[in-house]
Design a protein around this nucleic acid. Structure first.
Lengths: 311, 311
DNA sequence: TGGATGTGATAAGCTGCTCTTATGTTGCAA
DNA sequence: TTGCAACATAAGAGCAGCTTATCACATCCA
């Protein structure tokens, strides 16, 4: 019975309660008195009891206790609809919303701070949530499952479920301790790599790429230490434990104690992109996030081409 | 545009979101797939954007960001309707609700405690609000204005706006200090009253009734003290300052230091009743309050007839 | 690769709701 | 009593929304 309630009935209830008259309420709503009368009758049928006392004659109609109760709920519902409209307007304008983004270590450190800063400056009401892991498959699973709107990723696989926006090519470089690199910083040869003790990541999607790349140029790496943390890895190199092959993005290039050297012959750079689920509608704020990510990674596009093409 | 939203559309949105399929949602709602498809289309027209991504084929349809937002509001609204139904059921059963009652001093002390106690025992979820004043016109104004559901009153006027339930006749009696009343407690004669110093109320609707009644039996009262508080008044009598003419209900008959005596010839008792606004629908809890008031004042009906008929 | 299956969209037709217009009914006021 | 003002009700017109039937499309499996 209550299922037959209609929003229009609730609006009529509110208007009549405020005006104290079916006729005036009808004028306000743009209906005839008869229509409002029938709407209230329908509402009373749905509710199962009269909502107005009609004293007859020129006196105001007044709410019954039932009417007072229903009006309370009606105003809450009508208010909800009003705020829903405001929320929709903000969502449409992209000025508000949630964006949940998957990320991994090197992006978190080099790219994300600038993206988040730009978004906060441009659209302060957009909330950004982050989820970081170096397991790319987990990022993709979460993206497809819907708990992420976007995720940064390395495009090492084709996945037709994803729509990927390219950001830049991140070349693999070798880093060695400055103290252990007397000669001028030329490229690192495969021959040299073959004999150096290496420091690597824990087994991860990135490390697999590195090993595959090294194998392609005939290097079977000899790891003497592994760490899951890029900064720790670089500290090991700095202390002279060995060299490392890392994606450029993961390297702190401001560190004077290490030398960054391209690898010769180059191994294929990892393409970094940002992915959404193919066919899924994105909120404007989310689409803007992608654009901002493209803008912010502009320097890495030129830099990577500089390093990558220097072979 | 948002005005075209219908509750049925919101229910469809919720069902489809939960089922992940238009067809299954339709089954659940008792419609055909086509109907649900059209309902969602209508909702999307009202909202101005798609609420579902339809991947095509046997995959689940998924909410867009707009859909997530609208669904949030939809569930709030549907929840409101559900709780409205529950509230209505309770109101209908009379097991809950607000009753606001006007009262005056003597009723507050002698009648109300028993009524409130009985109501609380019988319907613990009914809330009772009280408003007390000895200005009867104010009680009636508030009742008619709607800030009171009921009011206790003395029926000294005809008022066609009110619907009055009789409770009992409250006789006027004389009280004198036990110490000053050596002879056995016979009725108080007009002659005796004429010579006694009297203690009276402040000018109030009740005091006016008393003076009118006394005038009718040829007594022009000589007041030596006035108080607005019945207990204070009785204390004055107790201390020997004079006698008092009071409605029986206002007298603490358990006080051994005062003697309660009928007046001879009797002056017309005041009829105590409980009033609601004529034509106004009362909540079941409110109607029950009136019934309980009638039950509780039963002893006063027999007592008043006992005293009043003894003339 | 091609058909079977499952899914949503769309067209057509019909039902029924919800308006409007017109009139009835009721309570108040003069 | 009459007149007025307000809500209720009846009847009809228009249209929204449902059902049936069909299309279009993607996946899955042989």
């Amino acid at each position: 019975m209550l299922q037959d309630l209609e929003i229009r009935h609730l609006a009529a209830l509110q208007a009549v309660a405020e005006e104290g008259s079916f006729g005036r309420a009808a004028t306000r709503l743009g209906f005839t008195q008869s229509a409002v009368s029938q709407q209230i009758a329908a509402l009373e049928r749905a509710v199962g009891a009269p909502v107005f006392d009609r004293p007859g004659g020129p006196r105001r109609v007044e709410l019954t206790p039932t009417g007072v109760l229903v009006l309370g709920h009606a105003e809450a519902i009508l208010g909800r609809i009003r705020t829903a409209g405001e929320d929709l307007a903000r969502l449409r304008a992209g000025s508000a919303g949630y964006v949940t983004v998957g990320t991994f270590q090197s992006v978190s450190v080099r790219i994300l701070p600038a993206v988040v800063k730009a978004m906060r400056a441009e659209r302060p009401d957009v909330e950004i949530g982050l989820y970081e892991t170096d397991e790319q498959l987990e990022l993709i699973d979460r993206l497809v499952a819907g708990s992420l709107d976007l995720t940064f990723m390395v495009q090492d696989v084709e996945d037709r479920r994803l729509h990927i926006t390219d950001l830049f090519l991140d070349p693999f470089v070798a880093i060695t301790a400055t103290a252990d690199t007397p000669q001028s910083t030329g490229p690192m040869s495969a021959e040299e790599l073959r004999h150096l003790p290496l420091i690597g990541e824990q087994t991860s999607s990135c490390q697999l790429l590195i090993d595959k790349g090294l194998a392609a140029i005939g290097v079977e790496p000899r790891y003497v230490f592994r760490s899951g943390d890029n900064a720790a890895l670089q500290a090991m190199v700095r202390s002279g434990l060995g060299a490392a092959v890392m994606p450029l993005l993961a390297v702190d290039t401001d560190d004077p104690e290490v030398v960054v050297r391209p690898i010769e012959p180059a191994i294929p750079p990892r393409p970094v992109g940002i992915a959404s689920v193919a066919g899924r509608t994105l909120a404007p704020a989310t689409e803007r996030f992608v654009e901002v990510a493209v803008e912010v990674s502009e320097p890495y596009r030129t830099m990577s081409s500089r390093v990558a093409t220097r072979r």
